[in-house]
Design a protein around this nucleic acid. Structure first.
Lengths: 347, 347
DNA sequence: CTGAAAGCGCTTACAG
DNA sequence: CTGAAAGCGCTTACAG
């Protein structure tokens, strides 16, 4: 069954296509006789008429479509970013077309061509975790925003989490709680995201504490467990741990369990990132510094829409979003081993 | 800078639009003089001409676009399904337009209308975990496949994992290894996915073992840890555990660590699902039954494309994909507490 | 107040 | 061998 066109409506109502268009777009008043308006509305209703968006696009030269490029891969991209971007765009009447690059420049280039052919009005590049992104030349022809990745040359505007700030926040929480011996499960050194988080920790710890801090590796759950075990079994173990990622926190929790260390009583723990809602599912729930995925996505899409509708130029090149702490039950003051005389004096 | 149109190419080459179209679409041979063909090709190249896909769609009445509806929410949807669907569609020259329903029928209905207006040729409905899905009436006008969800009335074709088979497979692995006392961390009872997995386990265990099996709850990491601890500390504890989901396996691993139980030596563990690659990151890596996300997505898109290009009707109403086991290091035979005389007799 | 015409960018018969 | 015309479905000036 073919979809009804404006011509079908016009035929049924006994008027011309122009009249149908006028009435259905709210320009009937003062132009079309009230009786005819009713006729047209009824006919449209009866035929279940809806304008063909493709024809509309060709006519108006606007597709109301935003291309989304996942880089280096769609796998791993935050579904929170996706859903927030989706919702914001939909509410404004825009559609999102997704394409994956697979981290391959050749594929990326073809994807950009396809998107350009489809006349997308703007572009969003989304990365699973903060990385550098070097936009190809062709990208410049359409308003573009990078989400969770940034152009080192700052040629393209980006919306990113303040990862260093997040690391600093984590460290500050522990320092404020009174910890002086802090260990950091740092994660893979080649990751931009991890490097920034650790740098933020280091900054706070070294200035506030003037105490040595231990940075150990860990790239997945198992290796984080090993790293945590190593640092927790040495002579003067840290009283608190910072994990650069929630998976590392799972590893740390595993190590603590093996060592019969209670995460509330014996050891404090702060984790960066709770995108997978893993850290918050542990017992006790781990205090985390969250990545503002929803806010970043909303901001990016909103900026794009503003640019498209109001022709407003982007006023900033990089927007770094604060990562808010979620205080849970894994942080308390350091455990002071109670001395007999001290205990006595308390009475 | 405006994009070049076929008219621009025609003007530059000094021919008509028709000739440009003919040559650029490979119908030049025998129709257009070789010299003119060269002229046209050069002009197109010089102007960086690419046909406008919107105009093409209007003309051909084909948008080469598939709508993707995430249900009940985009958050949590497997990025593996997304990336596989993306790749398969892209390779065939099709585009994917995503819309989220947020689990709201009103929103879903609006999304379907929008997709219909945009003239999508087919529809994919994707769920984060196996659930029932009742397609609204309006859906029936375009070829549709449900991925990871199924229509109880079987009105719409669906591609799903064989969750019961996955559960059975997990149980069989432990039975084959010689375990007779098996505990199951079952997960939330209201989840279709979980219910089927547990039913599969139960089936195998009760027929193969004629031994009682313990099913305990667990809905997240923390509660799974509690459940595992309960079952492992009773009088005759199970020698092996099945977790209906990898998050539950993390909980079980935590409980085991607290109880100083070694997952290889003292306790075997099989987990369903490794979509987040959590179970495989533990130490030892946990044997899992994988969800065939990639295969399901490829199959669904391929069926849709076949239907669109070859007009082939769907021949099956439901495709249940086998969930393949990934054997790792968490399964060995049950630990037989070595009796002195037994040990002696072995010498 | 209303219809005929033009045009968005394309391709495919159809004349010549 | 090549160009003019028609038409996909729409809207917006423009005549009347």
């Amino acid at each position: 069954m073919r979809r009804a066109t404006a011509q079908d409506v016009a035929d049924l109502a006994g008027v011309s296509r122009s009249s149908v268009s006028l009435v259905l777009n709210g320009h009937g008043e003062g132009n079309i006789a009230p009786a005819k308006q009713r006729l047209i509305l009824d006919a449209a209703e009866r035929l279940n008429y809806r304008p063909n968006a493709v024809a509309l696009s060709l006519r108006s030269q606007r597709t109301r479509t935003i291309g989304v490029l996942t880089w280096p891969s769609a796998a791993g991209t935050s579904s929170l970013i996706l859903s927030a971007a989706l919702r914001t765009a939909t509410e404004a009447g825009y559609l999102l077309i997704f394409m994956d690059t697979g981290g391959d420049e050749e594929v990326e280039s073809r994807a950009l061509t396809t998107l350009r052919d489809r006349q997308v009005e703007a572009l969003l590049v989304i990365a699973p975790e903060l990385t550098d992104y070097r936009p190809p030349e062709t990208m410049l022809s359409v308003p573009t925003i990078l989400v969770n990745c940034a152009d080192p040359q700052a040629g393209v505007t980006s919306v990113v989490p303040d990862e260093a700030g997040a690391g600093a926040c984590a460290a500050q929480i522990l320092v404020d709680a009174g910890h002086t011996r802090i260990g950091v499960i740092a994660g893979p050194a080649e990751s931009v995201q991890t490097r920034l988080r650790v740098a933020g920790c280091r900054q706070v710890i070294t200035t506030e504490l003037a105490a040595p801090v231990q940075f150990v590796g860990g790239r997945d759950v198992a290796s984080a467990a090993v790293a945590a075990r190593t640092v927790l079994t040495q002579a003067e173990p840290p009283t608190a741990l910072i994990c650069a990622h929630e998976r590392l926190a799972v590893g740390a929790a595993l190590a603590a369990a093996q060592l019969q260390l209670d995460i509330h009583r014996d050891l404090s723990l702060v984790s960066l990132d709770d995108g997978e809602q893993l850290a918050s599912q542990l017992n006790p729930a781990i205090t985390t510094i969250e990545r503002p995925d929803r806010a970043m996505a909303e901001q990016a899409v909103t900026m794009l829409l503003d640019r498209l509708t109001r022709e407003a130029e982007f006023s900033v090149k990089q927007l770094a979003f604060v990562c808010p702490p979620a205080h849970r039950d894994s942080v308390v003051g350091p455990r002071l081993d109670v001395q007999p005389e001290e205990a006595a004096s308390r009475r």
